[in-house]
Simulated scan of single mutants.
Amino acid sequence: MRFNRMLLSTTLVVVALVIQVTVLARLHLPGAVPDLMLLTVLALALVYGHVGGALIGFGAGLLADLAPPADHAAGRYALVLCLVGYLAGLMKPDSGQLRSATGPMAVVVAGAIGSTLLYAGVGALVGDTAAAQVGLGSLLFTATLYDLLLAPFVVPAIMALARRAENDPLADSGGGKTSDVSTGWLSAGTGLRIGSQRGSGLRMKSAKARVARAGRIKGVKRL
């Protein structure tokens, strides 16, 4: 990924993690916790594609695994967000523009359900039965509900920032160079036209000189 993508993704993930740990986790809502990290990964994956989504998801998940007060095995959430980011990136439209909010909201629902199931499944493999004690059905419902309520305030803003980062000044300067090249071609064409006009002007001057010379000759003969 390019430097601007890495910088923007890292900044957004860190901010999302700080808000997740300091604010959302302290709300003590029933069931699951609103997953701002998941929404950030989904939004970036819809702009950057499946490769970028997988890389961002892995980095975000690993950061969440290592950040206190994490109480699960390191790498567990990294695996979940890596898979979710990859699958969400496959939903990126070819044109890069989403025509309606239905697609992102469907991705959010699928991401919330998929990440919860994957997290509970990986936890069952390593002996973590917290999801079974709370109730998987309750976790799925509350996770989907909270993420859907939070998504309209997060996903469009992150996608807009990511698209704006794609049109960075470096890219604009590159485009400026392209336009300068085309302008150069236009200037070259204008130069050719000016050259032809100069040539015709020279021919007209030589014709006038011949006419004037002929007039002088005729005048001499009249004398």
Rank of each mutant, 00 (worst) to 15 (best):
K205S: 15
V154K: 06
L29V: 08
V80Y: 03
Y86E: 02
L39W: 09
L62A: 06
L42E: 00
G201W: 09
A160I: 02
K208T: 11
T102D: 10
N167F: 12
V14H: 00
A212I: 05
S115D: 06
L118I: 12
S138M: 13
A162Q: 05
F3Y: 05
L38K: 05
G191S: 12
A157Q: 10
N4P: 00
K221W: 10
S182Y: 08
M105W: 05
W185K: 11
G59K: 04
Q133A: 14
S138H: 13
R5S: 07
W185Y: 11
L117H: 06
L140F: 08
A132R: 08
Q20H: 09
A212W: 06
R26I: 02
P68S: 07
L139V: 05
A64K: 01
L27M: 14
V84A: 01
L8S: 00
L24G: 08
Q133R: 14
Y77I: 15
L186W: 11
L83T: 12
A45P: 08
K218A: 15
G52R: 01
Q197T: 14
Y146M: 03
A25N: 09
V18N: 07
G191N: 12
A131T: 05
R198P: 01
V18K: 04
K218Y: 09
D71G: 09
F153E: 01
V80N: 01
L136E: 04
